[in-house]
């Protein structure tokens, strides 16, 4: 992006830097962990001004409402102050695809699953519901429209709800990458590529564990990442150590080495997932020292998303009375 454009973001970036001070830091997360009851833990996030309906939430079990509201609040804040609204499309479009998946699957399985829908899509939820019901996708973006038609078609032939997920996920990241490229900003394109790579690495390990065949892998693995899908497909059946060796000299070397090692020992991808999230956080942390351009705004979004993920981990841990060490193990790196 040209320098001229960069200075358009001065106001927004400075405002975000001031707002970043209010992100939950280590000590606040510690306070949540040290709380005896879930209600006490919830107090920390209500103090941090989470959501809109703070005063009405007294029962710790409905903290999800707060988290959802907080996400909406964040998106509203960012698109209010950003001189270029479309920079958050990459995240909001992801929610569109999620909504479409939920709506289509709910319809085919004949159930109502409204609680899984998210309000923070690029397409308004009410309109989305209507469009899916009436099968009119005229004003949807072309990639989304194509993907919906493909998945309806495939489902009609195979009756396999999983095919909806596969096609829409594939299209979702294609759309994200396209939106990122249209912004012409290296930071954002790099972020989407890193997201694709981390999804692929996780997927790759699951595919191996489930002993899926090449054909299936071809459909599942996302295209457009910095590591080509062929690398995964060719190594689908090679031993774990050679996979680690292969990825060691990419930027994901660290993630793979300890994540896959853990996977080998425990058979769970939890550690790998955490490392992948931390990798993304490490990537966006680069924006911490930038004072102009869109990167700090994107980074704030990712930071908030991670914060909400952490709050969810702590809250579910507290409600299920897990020991603090176990909760801590799952927590993601913070931005601040």
């Amino acid at each position: 992006m040209s320098k001229k454009n960069e200075t358009n973001f001065l106001y927004a970036v400075a405002k975000i830097k001031a707002i970043e001070n209010r992100l939950l830091d280590k000590s606040k997360i510690e306070r949540m962990l040290d709380a005896y009851t879930p209600e006490d833990a919830l107090k920390v996030i209500t103090e941090a001004d989470y959501g809109y309906s703070v005063s009405e939430v007294s029962d710790a079990h409905i903290y999800e409402v707060l988290l959802e509201e907080e996400m909406q609040k964040t998106i509203k804040l960012l698109s209010d102050i950003s001189p270029q609204k479309e920079i958050f499309d990459i995240f909001m479009q992801k929610n569109d695809y999620h909504n479409v998946k939920v709506l289509l699957k709910a319809e085919f399985l004949g159930i109502e699953k409204d609680e899984n829908l998210v309000e923070t899509g690029a397409i308004e939820l009410r309109k989305m519901k209507m469009s899916v019901k009436e099968r009119s996708f005229i004003d949807f973006p072309p990639i989304l429209r194509q993907a919906i038609n493909d998945s309806l078609d495939t489902f009609g032939r195979t009756n396999d709800p999983q095919s909806i997920d596969l096609i829409l996920d594939q299209a979702c990241y294609k759309q994200m990458l396209e939106s990122a490229k249209s912004l012409n900003n290296d930071f954002v394109t790099g972020l989407v590529k890193a997201l694709i790579d981390t999804v692929n690495i996780k997927m790759f390990m699951r595919l191996r564990a489930l002993k899926k065949n090449w054909d299936f892998a071809q459909r599942v693995l996302l295209k457009g990442g910095s590591i080509d899908t062929d690398v995964y497909i060719n190594n689908l059946e090679s031993p774990v150590d050679s996979v680690i060796e292969l990825l060691r000299y990419t930027s994901y070397g660290n993630v793979c080495e300890s994540g896959i090692e853990d996977f080998k020992n425990t058979g769970s991808v939890a550690a790998l997932e955490k490392l992948c999230d931390n990798y993304i956080m490490g990537y966006v942390k680069k924006a911490k020292y930038l004072s102009m351009g869109m990167a700090p705004l994107i980074a704030y979004y990712v930071a908030k998303e991670t914060e909400i993920k952490n709050v969810r981990i702590v809250m579910t841990g507290k409600i299920n009375k897990l020991p603090n060490e176990q909760i801590k193990e799952r927590l993601r790196d913070l931005y601040v």
């Binding site: 200075t7 001065l10 106001y11 400075a14 830097k17 001031a18 102050i81």
Partner: peptide, 14 residues
């Protein structure tokens, strides 16, 4: 002007 925009951003929050 550049600095002023950034200043307005910070002062609006704090």
């Amino acid at each position: 002007g550049l600095a002023g925009e950034a200043a307005a951003g910070v002062v609006s929050e704090d």
